[in-house]
């Protein structure tokens, strides 16, 4: 279980002191084991900052982040991140990219290769093992990113708008694939998105955040049965939750624009 209590994070001004921006203000929430939590909110709500804090990539100012009661002080083998812009090494082929996390953690070379091959197959990239990232489409590149994260067999998968840079059709295919994989290899997932459809389609719960400073507005249960797919999006529950999210996000955007005028 992931527990977040009173979490605050302030980004300091350029001079390194004072007049900073409060990115996250006293967040409180929990993520259950094997739960799929999607996080949505307008830009500036600190959702990416939150993810990077849980990943242990940046420090925070106040509060605590605990995973199974152990405070997070840095990156750990229980977590892996899928990045918005893929973050693939352009000089390394697909297999090497997928095996990267394993190699960093000192796994034996033969085992690295075996695991990487299994994941390349899992994400449907068989036959592309020796290709360089630049030879792949955006969707394929992110599948490499997903395979790399899954390769280290983390209990928690942190996904930072992973499909945000992809076109609509590719995104839908990857959402379906992610759900299929998640069905096979249950993990706790925190999934940042700015797409309302995506938030509802994927999440067991949707966490709605407000901007400046980032706060939890509400956590909404998504009582849609799994496996989910195209049919899910036609259900009344799906549409209702999506509408509800839009009402909230819309009012935040309007407020935001007034605030800036």
């Amino acid at each position: 279980m992931i527990q977040i209590r009173g979490l605050s994070k302030e980004f300091l001004g350029r001079d390194g002191a004072g007049t900073g921006v409060l990115a996250i203000d006293s967040l409180n929430f929990e993520v259950r084991d094997n739960e799929f939590l999607t996080v949505i909110g307008p830009s500036g709500c600190g959702k990416t900052t939150l993810l990077r804090i849980i990943a242990g990539l940046i420090p925070f100012d106040d509060g605590e982040v605990r995973i199974d009661d152990v405070p997070v002080t840095g990156p750990g083998p229980d977590r892996a991140v899928v990045f918005q812009n893929f973050a693939l090494m352009p000089w390394a082929d697909v297999l090497t990219n997928v095996a990267f996390g394993l190699e960093i953690r000192g796994t034996a070379k033969a085992e690295c290769e075996g695991t990487a091959m299994r994941l390349v197959r899992l994400v449907g990239l068989e036959g592309f093992e020796r290709r360089l990232p630049k030879e792949l489409s955006g969707g394929m590149q992110q599948r490499v990113g997903l395979a790399r994260a899954l390769a280290v067999n983390p209990r928690i998968l942190l996904m930072d708008e992973p499909f945000g840079a992809l076109d609509e059709q590719t995104r839908r295919l990857l959402q379906e694939q992610l759900l299929r994989i998640w069905d096979q290899e249950r993990k706790t997932v925190i999934f940042i998105t700015h797409s309302m459809e995506e938030a509802v389609l994927l999440g067991d719960r949707v966490m709605l955040m407000t901007p400046r400073p980032g706060r939890v507005k509400e956590i909404i249960d998504v009582p849609l049965k799994r496996p989910r797919g195209q049919e899910t999006e036609k259900s009344t529950t799906f549409v209702e939750i999506k509408e509800y999210l839009w009402e909230n996000l819309r009012s935040m955007q309007v407020l935001d624009q007034r605030g800036e005028a």
Binding site: R52, A55, G56, L57, G74, P75, G76, P77, R79, A80, V81, F83, A87, M89, P90, W91, A92, F100, G101, E103, I104, R105, V152
Partner: peptide, 21 residues
């Protein structure tokens, strides 16, 4: 950041990421 997220230390970051890049 990607390398750090997998727990890479300074030497690994240097040899596996910074240098080739």
């Amino acid at each position: 950041e990607m390398a750090s997220s997998f727990g890479a230390n300074e030497r690994q970051i240097f040899l596996r990421v910074l240098l080739p890049a």
